[in-house]
Write a protein that binds this DNA or RNA. Structure first.
Lengths: 226, 226
DNA sequence: ACGCTAGGTGTACGGTGTACGCCTGTCAAG
DNA sequence: CTTGACAGGCGTACACCGTACACCTAGCGT
């Protein structure tokens, strides 16, 4: 049975699936070739190099973003767009890291940015203000904020002996009291949950609204730079 | 002449200098060993592995951050702290990428975060609000905002033929009119400078002040979550 | 029947991090 | 003194990475 031939689509689709299932590190040219039942160099007939492969994978995620209801006013429209982006990025755990590492602005990336910018402009914001707002949003236009604390520890790892754990906890409290304070507050005082205890969704929306509110105020009073 | 022995300090210092001079990619165990006149495996007697090396380099940069004048009120104190961090990170072009890639919260990292959190707390902000504000600031506490557009193109690269350049420019204008609009506005209409034309310092401070202003307002009206 | 070409193959090169064993100079205890 | 532990630098080796380059072959338009 002659398998159907490769294609850029098939390669990218397989890469996304592989990353979804086994993580971004599993997406090596060799690894990807293997799941496609093909020799590594075969991929290069469809993708120029690994960077382009990554770009293509990110583009695939962007393709899942949904446009907001056109009836919404600009803050809600931006909000809807970014939250849709967030949902897509969360569906692909690797996407965040991939987006952060890419610097290439593909047509898909530019298209999405253009849509976001367009939403502000149609809302009446000045070119000037819109420009700075885009910078202020930063990676939040991709639906995520930077991770402030550790990624949640691997739950399969064996916990350290209780004695030592208490000792390090005490030292932590002594050296970083303020961090401890806000970390425990976030988990309702459950110290053991401190690592992965933040409600990322809330944090995302908090920051987003903080920025959008600020922008709305600047816009309302006719802000202009310099 | 017996060279003085290696030490963790010396290794880290050499790594930082190497990265400063030749970029982060030049910092491989082999490359670093070479500039130290030593065999690669020798480094492992002083650093557990490459991740720890990177962590150490980041810690070195954090060591350059300066504490603000204690007489400042909280918004100015935070501002001063973050701008000091920014100066340090700008001194080491690689630091930004290194910080983004690290997930490990070393004592140095926690110490710095604790200082920032402490500044908010001493200003009277609630634990609750402070926590969310830290998330909202995100990587901005390291003195940089995410790059929205391409890194400036390598100026040594030969420019494409004028004809083709005009054609792609026209297509760009057709497909991404809004992006073009804000990009040209940022450079005063100089289209050729669009790539690296943003005033990053302004963007950083704009976003920072937008956030701090919003926070001050929330604080003033006694905001609390849920 | 011919030759072109798209697409898969095989081999090879130079790079990476790092595990493991060895060897040697220093220094403290017997 | 001698001895033995040990810190620290050395050498080799392994598995993995991206990818350059030459080759082969099936299918197709002329």
């Amino acid at each position: 049975m002659a398998r159907e031939p490769l294609s850029r689509e098939r390669v990218l689709r397989a890469a996304v699936e592989l990353a979804d299932g086994s993580g971004l590190d599993a997406v090596s040219m060799r690894g990807l070739a293997q799941v496609l039942g093909v020799v590594p160099m075969a991929l290069y007939k469809h993708v120029a190099n690994k960077d382009e492969l990554l770009d293509g994978m990110v583009d695939a995620v962007i393709g899942e973003f949904e446009a907001p209801d056109p009836a919404l006013d600009w803050p809600d429209a931006v909000r809807a767009r970014l939250l849709s982006a967030r949902r897509a990025v969360l569906r692909h755990a690797w996407a965040r890291r991939a987006i952060e590492s890419r610097t290439r602005r593909t047509p898909a990336v530019l298209g999405y940015m253009d849509a976001v910018v367009g939403t502000f402009r149609r809302g009446g914001l000045s070119v000037d203000l819109t420009h700075h707002v885009m910078h202020a949003l930063g990676n939040r236009i991709w639906g995520f904020s930077p991770e402030l604390f550790d990624a949640p520890a691997d739950p399969s790892a064996p916990p350290p002996p209780a004695e030592q754990q208490r000792a390090t906890a005490e030292e932590f409290a002594r050296r970083f009291p303020h961090v401890l304070e806000i970390a425990t507050a976030a988990t309702g005082g459950d110290l053991s949950a401190v690592g992965g205890g933040c409600d990322e969704q809330f944090e995302f929306e908090f920051a987003l609204d903080l920025l959008l509110d600020g922008v709305a105020r600047l816009h309302g009073r006719g802000w202009r730079s310099a």
